[in-house]
Each structure stands twice: as structure tokens, then as C-alpha cells.
Design a protein around this nucleic acid. Structure first.
Ligand SMILES: Nc1ncnc2c1ncn2[C@H]1C[C@H](O)[C@@H](COP(=O)(O)OP(=O)(O)OP(=O)(O)O)O1
Ligand SMILES: [Mg+2]
Length: 427
DNA sequence: GTCCGACTAAC
RNA sequence: AUUGUUAGUCGGAC
């Protein structure tokens, strides 16, 4: 069949060998688990090679039917459960290929105040924008979160807005089929239809969610409001509580009526910025601060990593502790406020010492255990002799793991009381 | 700048 | 077991 020379279809761009290869690389590097067909990433290249020409033909001629997504429930960080919808490895590759073509098409249209799921944009960007509004005198925050966001996306409304900039009918039809692919339980084995929602786990879902909530962004911009949005979580800055209350009421109505989305009444608030919590941070008039909640979670996992009953070597334990602190600080390090209650540095050192305390109390058996774990003999012996010697041991391990005083300082984990005094204007 | 791996965070 | 997008840090091959 001869195509008109000048315009190649969108579907051909998606199925382009280079694009498909890039999509497969991405799915492979994610290392995710299989969907309903049970085909793993390792098995996929072999199994798909013979079937690919047929699948490609089906996609080009509009008769490809995606597999339903696998329902897996995982705990949310905030408590409660998250219902994932895991597509087949094949469908993840195809959706990824679609997303790679559609992202550059839609992204330029999106709002400057939209920060979630977008290339070149981050949670930090959203935080800095909110902070700049706070600094310029907006002291009240309307914090809104949507209920079961991905699961409640209305197909018709979404497809209408997708179709306004994507004109290609075959691709639109394929996206529609992905939305209606249905879900299957692992044990049940029966397909349940999905008349609403986009799967939490589909590579295309984040982009689709942004296309839908772009309608919200334009409404907020039309009203000339100061806001930042990250996925379904957004903050609108106002100068008074009353103003915030009416905005929350009107935006709730807008979302319900125009987009058929429900705002989470319990999670959504209007409060002075010190009480608001957005992407793990809160704000004072001058500073960005990590939330109490995020900080407590940090302490909890450090406790976990330094608990005595963990059958791994000290090196590995400290390595894990180091990378965790490094990663955590990487995100939360933009906080300009350090919690005053306790020196994290001192506390950390105490936790590290705890790892060895028990070993010191039972020298004979522990020394042997230490040797088994690959600890050099001289250190193992020192560990069994005295608490003072033990200190040398833990210090040496800590420095071997890269957690020197200088490193801790670099992480912002020393002189915390001093910094706090500065923050309060006492020094 | 591309690609690979480990980890952290937000949703 | 746990999917996806995005950002970041570290290490490696060009
Ligand atoms: N781990 C994840 N994997 C895939 N998608 C996710 C993940 N976390 C969040 N999302 C997507 C799907 C969610 O609908 C959307 C908003 O997240 P979130 O507000 O935490 O949950 P939710 O809106 O589905 O339920 P809730 O009613 O508790 O707010 O972001
Ligand atoms: Mg939500």
C-alpha cells in the first residue's frame, strides 16, 4: 500500500524502529515484573521476535487488542492501599513508544505551573515556585488532593482533550483501547471492564493525567491565581483565609462539573503556609522546611538500617546507611531549617555504636561471627575487648564507608543546634 | 551528549 | 513480592 509521500502517519512514527528500540530499552532498564501473560523481561525478546511482524501489522491496521492489566495491591506511604494496574511487558513497550512520540507534542502546551511527570521539571521546581509566592506576601495556602485520581479519570472527557491536539484517528483509537483494556486478578483469572480510570502502572498514564489536568491549569491561570501543581496535588496561594475558602469551593465545583473529578475532602485544606504540607515540605515566611512527618520517617528508617538484628556485614550496613542518607539529603537538603530537638549527628553515631554493643558483650561468639562476616582479624579482636577499642572500630568502619566528619558536615548533619539558633535569629 | 548500573525523593 | 512517570546523587563504558 502506497502512503502519500509528504505525511507519514503518527502510528508509523510510533512504530519506527529507533523509537521502538528506545521504548524497549526503557522498559528493560526499569526491570519491572510481568503482566497477566506472565512473560518476564528476560523472556520477552525471544518470545516476541517471531510475533512482532504480526503485532506491528495489527497496530498499523487498527485491530490490535491490548491485554488487560494485572491488579496488584501495594501499601501507600500515607497508609491505605494503592491498586496498581500492571500491563504486559509488550503493552508497556507499546505504551512507552506512544508516550515518547506524544510527550514532545503535548508538553509545550502545558502550564509553567505544572511540575509533575514532565521532562525537565521536578518537585523541587514546584517547591521553589511556592516559596517565591510565599516570599512575595501570599501567606495562605489552598492545598488540594484528588481522590483516587488515576482510577477516576473519565475516558470521554480525557479523549476529547487528547483529540484536540492529536488528530491521528488510529492512535486515538489505540489509546481508547488501552483505557478500556480491563483488569485481571492474579488468582481470579476473570477480566473486569474498566469504564473509567487510567492504569497506575501504564507508561502513558502520567502524560494522559497531565493532559486532563491541563484543563484545571488553564482555569486557574484564567483566574490569575498563584499556584503549583504536581500530579493531582496542587497548592494555590492566597492573601487571606476567606479568599482561600471561596477558591477551594469554586475549584471543587469546577473539577466535579467539568472534569468529573472528586477532591479529597479530608486531605484538602486552606491554612496559613506554616501548616500546609506539599511534596514533603512546609514553609515559613522566609524558609523552606521539611515536614515533621518526612523527618520522622527518616529517623525510623535509619533505626531500621542500624538495628542489631540484621544479618549482614558492618561494611554493607554502613554502605546502605550512607547511600540512604545521601539520597534523602539530596531531596530534603533544600530545606533551610534543621530540626532543633536533637543533633542528628550525635544520634546517628549512637545508632552506629549500638550495632556493635551487643557484640562487645558476647566477645567469644561474636568475634568468630565477625570473622565469618569478613571483618579483618585485628578489628574483630578489638571489638571483643573493650568499649573504647570498639569506638575505634566503628569510627574506622564509618570512615571506610565514607561517613567521615567532613562527609556528615557536608550532609548538613553537624552543628544542628547552631544552625537552628541562626534560623531563629539568636546568634 | 548518548548508554549502563546502584540508590534517594515526589506523585 | 511492587507497576509507571519525573527529578536528583554516586559509580562505570564511550
Ligand atoms: N507508585 C506509583 N505508581 C504508579 N502511579 C502512582 C504511584 N504513586 C502515585 N501514582 C499516581 C496514581 C495516583 O492516582 C496519582 C496520585 O497519587 P495519590 O494522590 O498518592 O493517590 P490517589 O489519588 O490514587 O489516592 P488518594 O485518594 O489516596 O489520594 O499518582
Ligand atoms: Mg490523590
Amino acid at each position: 500500500m502506497e502512503q502519500p509521500a509528504l505525511n507519514t502517519s503518527m502510528m508509523e512514527l510510533i512504530l519506527d524502529n529507533g523509537n521502538m528500540h528506545r521504548a524497549w530499552k526503557q522498559v528493560k532498564r526499569n526491570g519491572g515484573s510481568p503482566g497477566v501473560d506472565g512473560i518476564t523481561i528476560d523472556q520477552f525478546p525471544q518470545l516476541v521476535r517471531s510475533r512482532w511482524p504480526g503485532i506491528r501489522h495489527a497496530l498499523l491496521h487498527g485491530y490490535y487488542i491490548p491485554s488487560p492489566v494485572l491488579r496488584v495491591e501495594i501499601p501507600k506511604k500515607s497508609g491505605g492501599i494503592r491498586k496498581l494496574g500492571i500491563p504486559t511487558v509488550l503493552d508497556r513497550v507499546i505504551q512507552q513508544a506512544i508516550a515518547q512520540v506524544l510527550n514532545p507534542l503535548f508538553d509545550p502546551e502545558f502550564s509553567d505551573s505544572s511540575f509533575g511527570f514532565r521532562p525537565g521539571r521536578s518537585a523541587h521546581g514546584a517547591i521553589h515556585q511556592v516559596h517565591s509566592y510565599v516570599a512575595s506576601g501570599y501567606r495562605y495556602a489552598v492545598d488540594v488532593d484528588l481522590e483516587k485520581f488515576f482510577d477516576t479519570v473519565d475516558h470521554d472527557i480525557l479523549m476529547h482533550h487528547v483529540g484536540r491536539t492529536l488528530r491521528d484517528k488510529p492512535v486515538l483509537r489505540l489509546i481508547g483501547r488501552y483505557l478500556r483494556a480491563g483488569v485481571m486478578d492474579k488468582c481470579g483469572g476473570v477480566r473486569v471492564p474498566t469504564p473509567i480510570g487510567t492504569p497506575q502502572g501504564g507508561p502513558l498514564s502520567p502524560l494522559l493525567s497531565n493532559i486532563l489536568l491541563h484543563q484545571l491549569d488553564t482555569e486557574l491561570e484564567r483566574r490569575q491565581l498563584r499556584f503549583a501543581r504536581y500530579a493531582d496535588d496542587f497548592v494555590i496561594l492566597t492573601k487571606s483565609r476567606a479568599e482561600g475558602d471561596t477558591i477551594l469551593r469554586e475549584i471543587t465545583a469546577f473539577l466535579g462539573k467539568k472534569l468529573k473529578l472528586v477532591v479529597n475532602q479530608t486531605k484538602s485544606t486552606v491554612a496559613p503556609i506554616q501548616k500546609c504540607s506539599f511534596l514533603g515540605f512546609t514553609f515559613t515566611a522566609k524558609k523552606i522546611c521539611w515536614t515533621q512527618r518526612a523527618y520522622q520517617e527518616f529517623l525510623r528508617t535509619v533505626k531500621q538500617l542500624t538495628r542489631r538484628s540484621w544479618g549482614v556485614s558492618m561494611q554493607y550496613r554502613l554502605y546502605r546507611l550512607k547511600v540512604y542518607i545521601q539520597g534523602w539529603m539530596n531531596y530534603y537538603g533544600i530545606s533551610q531549617f534543621y530540626r532543633p530537638v536533637q543533633s542528628i549527628d550525635e544520634w546517628l553515631r549512637r545508632r552506629i555504636r549500638m550495632c556493635y554493643w551487643k557484640q562487645w558483650r558476647y566477645p567469644r561468639t561474636r568475634v568468630r561471627k565477625l570473622l565469618e562476616l569478613g571483618v579483618p582479624r585485628e578489628y574483630a579482636v578489638i571489638a571483643g575487648s573493650s568499649s573504647k577499642a570498639y569506638w575505634r572500630l566503628s569510627k574506622s568502619y564509618a570512615t571506610n564507608a565514607g561517613m567521615s566528619n567532613a562527609w556528615l558536615a557536608q550532609q548538613g548533619l553537624v552543628n544542628i543546634k547552631q544552625l537552628w539558633c541562626k534560623a531563629q535569629g539568636y546568634s
